[in-house]
Design a protein around this nucleic acid. Structure first.
Lengths: 257, 257
DNA sequence: CGGTACTTTGAGAATCGTCAAAGATAGTGG
DNA sequence: CCACTATCTTTGACGATTCTCAAAGTACCG
């Protein structure tokens, strides 16, 4: 905080590799993320400014109110975005998986925190260079615009959840969304896994911060979902949604969502 | 619903004028909205496809899950965006004032409702023509991208409010935001009004739907704010925020917001 | 094996919701 | 101009959900 306008991130990443082989060919961002619309020559131009970084689970990636000095593409792992009230109450406002884009384009100050939920690998783009690359590459801006529209839609669905749903409905909604996202991630990785079975990588506290609940309430709702035979939990980590229609009904999720 | 893919809006606007004088010169959208970045010739091109429409307070502008077949720029009045759960629970997800842009670009189906809160005037753009105009006008896409980023930020601040704040904090947050937005609107209209004094144009039900509360709770929180001498209400409609620092403290709003 | 961190469960409290009724406001028509 | 109705808002009493505080249970790590 307040260490000036250096172009480097203050939060020490556990590894920063310069001139790494980026393996764009194997990257999900190249396949279906922000890089999917770039030509080979554009990819090369982007590579030059790109660094890969890794963060350990729990580490901050950037902080609220700091100068917005980095953009990221998630290569693997889960990143959470959050805001904090002056008295410490915390609200998670988004979860990002590969190949999501993270960062505050056209803003000089961050408006939220970003933390690594699991170990995370990202491509990191320096702000000035990236913004000028962006201005020269309308197709990329178009792509980021579309991704932002999706994020806006997602945020509004979370608003509906936060404002209008009960505790158990909130948890059902989150578990279904996580199942979906984890399944998608496994497909993108080529590791076929079962739909509606996944490893829960969020702690009770992280779930509570997302749902606007306390951890005790979250824990109680898990117990209810188990007793009602909507889900099964193995080894405290592996969630299996047994009654998918029942869960969707509880979550009040439309098929189109 | 389901009346086919006509290019006209089913919800009857009380007035639709074709070939109207648009008075772009006097319009807030031209001054600081989406049109502010257009050249004279671009404005002319946009005008050709544009119709002005008016909606009465309470009227639907478009509905969730319908084909997304119109884009709008708010010229005057207030529009609310909302979602509804299958059992009827309603959540307002956004409020739009002049010169905001409304509509689902690059999406073929609406993802929320839009209703006129007050009497509303809009410019309405037909979808195909507007999207092709958009693709030919990178500066407009850039502008809409920035506006979308702001909306995303706003939505995330509402998420923080919905998930983490108490009833009275929620109301204080909303009243401060309304004061700000109404003051801005009056400035854009050239009618200088007092900061922190405004006409409350939302009903208790609309406030409750926004804050994720019931109307009785909203009403009780108004009473508390009055008793604590944070606000004064005249004629049930005119809100005066008496103790601004106290309200900001209660709302836990940072000055930078 | 012991310690630490996380999760679950329980009991009681606080906040918010539900139901019901009384006030207040605006519009209508005599 | 004054009832009279319809709608919206406020207030009260009670109930349900969620939170708080506390303790016990469980997994993880050295």
């Amino acid at each position: 905080m307040g260490t000036g306008d250096m172009d480097t991130n203050i939060d020490a990443p556990i590894k920063e590799s310069q001139g790494d082989r980026f393996e764009c060919e194997a990257c999900v961002a190249r396949a279906c993320g922000m890089c999917s619309i770039l030509t080979e020559s554009q990819i090369s131009a982007l590579r030059v400014m790109t660094r890969t970084r890794e963060y350990q689970a729990g580490e901050p990636i950037f902080c609220d109110e700091e100068p917005s000095h980095q953009f990221f593409a998630v290569r693997s792992g889960i990143v959470k975005l959050s805001k904090i009230l002056p008295d410490g109450r915390q609200q998670t406002i988004g979860l990002n998986f590969a190949p999501d884009f993270i960062g505050q384009v056209y803003t000089d100050t961050n408006r939220y925190f970003a933390h690594a939920v699991t170990d995370v690998k990202v491509c990191s783009f320096p702000p000035q260079k990236f913004e000028s690359f962006l201005s020269e590459t309308p197709s990329l801006e178009h792509r980021l615009f579309k991704l932002t529209l999706d994020e806006l839609d997602t945020a509004r669905n979370w608003m509906l959840m936060l404002g209008s749903k009960t505790a158990i409905e909130k948890l059902a909604t989150l578990l279904l969304k996580l199942a979906e996202r984890m399944y998608l991630a496994s497909c993108l990785n080529g590791q076929m896994s079962k739909r509606y079975e996944f490893e829960l990588l969020l702690s009770r506290t992280e779930i509570a911060d997302f749902l606007g609940l306390k951890i005790e309430t979250v824990s109680r709702q898990f117990t209810v979902l188990k007793k009602e035979k909507l889900i099964e939990i193995e080894n405290q980590r592996f969630i299996k949604i047994v009654d998918v229609p029942g869960m969707k009904d509880l979550a009040a999720i439309r098929e189109s969502d």
